[in-house]
């Protein structure tokens, strides 16, 4: 029980001071630009879904979706902010089918970019790794040739770095 509560405390503390300040600023900004905030809340829904479902390290996968989603929403957001800050206007703007299609399609493009780039890059990385493996094998062979099998570290060596072999030990005369 105590363990669970401490873990929860740890999770809470993950936000940190900066996060807390940022959150406050966002909330305050949201209260000031209420229309824009409502618009963004609905327009960025694919991003929220992507972030929540992202299990990758540092949640990098959702970045491209978020970026593209925001890029799609930005012109409309700019319109809401510059035209009318009211919630009704924002809801009206977001309820336009074309708006929703553009915003969500851009999020989809983000997903496509992510899928394509990751596929290409991962393939390249595998090739690079294989090439590196070949290079390592060659280097190891060179080292073995120049320094002998003792360089592998697989043999028991004396203080001077030479193999301790029975033929190097002689009986007392």
């Amino acid at each position: 029980m105590a363990k669970a509560s401490s873990q929860r405390r740890k999770k809470k503390s993950k936000i940190g001071l900066k996060g807390t300040i940022l959150l406050c600023v966002v909330i305050m900004m949201g209260m000031v630009f209420m229309g824009g905030a409502v618009f963004l809340l609905i327009a960025m829904a694919p991003s929220f879904v992507a972030v929540i479902s992202d299990r990758s390290k540092d949640r990098l996968r959702s970045f491209s979706i978020c970026f593209m989603n925001f890029a799609g929403a930005f012109p409309f957001l700019l319109d809401v902010i510059t035209t009318n800050q009211s919630i009704d206007y924002a809801l009206n703007a977001i309820s336009q089918p074309a708006t929703v299609v553009i915003i969500y399609a851009s999020a989809g493009i983000g997903y496509l970019i992510n899928w394509a780039v990751v596929g290409i890059v991962a393939n390249m990385m595998v090739q690079k790794a294989k090439k590196r493996l070949n290079t390592i094998e060659e280097r190891k062979a060179t080292l073995r040739e120049q320094w002998g099998p003792e360089v592998t570290g697989e043999m028991k060596l004396d203080s001077d770095g030479f193999p301790i072999e029975p033929e190097n030990i002689q009986n007392p005369k």
Binding site: S56, K57, L60, R61, F63, S64, I65, F67, M68, A71, G110, I113, N114, A116, V117, V118, G119, I120, V121, A122, N123, M124, M125, V126, A129
Partner: peptide, 14 residues
């Protein structure tokens, strides 16, 4: 393997 880098590059491009 390589997905992490792929995500990064995709994020940069996006």
């Amino acid at each position: 393997f390589g997905f992490g880098t792929g995500y990064e590059i995709a994020a940069i491009i996006s």
